[in-house]
């Protein structure tokens, strides 16, 4: 223990000569199986710098911590903010534009010059292929399927689902939620708990991403998981990176942002974060061949922020009956 304490207080003097880039991200990004370690290695090989990841929790925790730090923060770049939280992020004035409109291929037009998309995915319900597959919220509501979802008050996918319903069904969302109430087995605080319940066999389906089956296929050789495509379209999650205004190394930070969109980094992100890369790079067949929705639903950050509280209240009211 004494040793641990000592190392905790040791100054990071060893890297005093090479510049250090402080990158804040969410915890599963830096895990051994996330993109973090590979990206760190690849970027350090070309930047003559030291890349240090800080991961104070999930995407929401990250924004909360940046707000707590305020303008005096030491973070140079943040990676992994959810587009649904961008209005809040923008309002902090903590971030600065990186310059140009990025050359990315998203299902929607992206013109923001502060927040750089590095990957994206469609929310979807993942289930076993041998179950009857619903192809709309209405079919799901009419089925006997039991699904597990995340709470929009504590989880970004949970929030994404509420926005999905709102974007697809507008004023009809409340009625649909009421129809879905008996299909919702339970609500978990976060994605991990929900996915754990699903893989443990407790639920028939789980709110996740349409790209999730690629993990099971590529890593487990399991082709039995599918994410059926809904006719009304699927809501888009876009994960973005940005440079902080307080960064002492704006050039290095911009280099890192550019690096995130490199072929190498983009491929790594796809097969470790299990999301579509922001640029059109060659992907393994299991990934590239996944079914894609015909229609993409997405509320611009300002609209998302404006609709959020009412949409959550509607969800809460319908499921509390």
């Amino acid at each position: 223990m004494r040793l641990l304490l000592l190392t905790a207080f040791l100054p990071a003097a060893a890297f005093a000569q090479t510049p250090t880039l402080q990158v804040m991200t969410y915890d599963s990004f830096v895990g051994e199986w996330g993109p973090g370690p590979r990206i760190e290695q690849a970027f350090e090989a070309e930047c003559a710098c030291n890349l240090v990841f800080t991961a104070p929790g999930d995407a929401a925790a990250m924004l909360a911590r940046l707000k707590l730090e305020g303008a005096r923060g030491r973070t140079d770049v943040v990676v992994g903010l959810d587009a649904n939280l961008l209005a809040e992020a923008q309002a902090t004035d903590l971030f600065v534009p990186h310059g140009t409109v990025p050359a990315v291929d998203l299902p929607v037009d992206w013109t923001d010059t502060t927040f750089l998309p590095f990957d994206w995915g469609w929310f979807g319900f993942v289930m076993n292929a041998d179950m009857p597959q619903p192809h709309s919220f209405q079919e799901l509501a009419d089925s006997d399927l039991k699904v597990v979802i995340q709470d929009p008050r504590s989880s970004t996918p949970g929030l994404g689902l509420v926005m999905w319903m709102k974007a697809a069904h507008g004023d009809g969302a409340g009625t649909l939620w009421e129809g879905l109430a008996d299909n919702i087995l339970t609500v978990t605080p976060g994605w991990s708990e929900a996915y754990g319940l699903f893989t443990a066999g407790e639920a028939d389906a789980v709110l996740s991403y349409t790209t999730s089956p690629a993990y099971h296929l590529l890593e487990e050789g399991d082709s039995g998981k599918v994410a059926p495509i809904f006719r009304e379209g699927h809501y888009l999650q876009v994960e973005v990176a940005a440079r902080l205004a307080a960064s002492a190394q704006p050039e290095l930070a911009d280099r890192f942002l550019a690096f995130l969109l490199s072929d190498n980094a983009q491929r790594t992100i796809a097969t470790t974060n299990w999301m579509y890369p922001a640029r059109d790079v060659p992907l393994p067949e299991a990934f590239a061949g996944l079914p894609r929705p015909d229609k993409t639903l997405f509320l611009p950050p300002a609209d998302a922020a404006a609709a959020r509280d009412a949409a959550i209240a509607e969800w809460q009211a319908a499921l509390s009956r």
Binding site: D27, G31, W33, G34, S192, E193, Y195, G196, Y215
Partner: peptide, 13 residues
């Protein structure tokens, strides 16, 4: 505990 969380977050249930 954090590692357990990370493993779950990376689909490795």
């Amino acid at each position: 505990p954090l590692l357990v969380q990370q493993l779950m977050g990376a689909y490795r249930m």
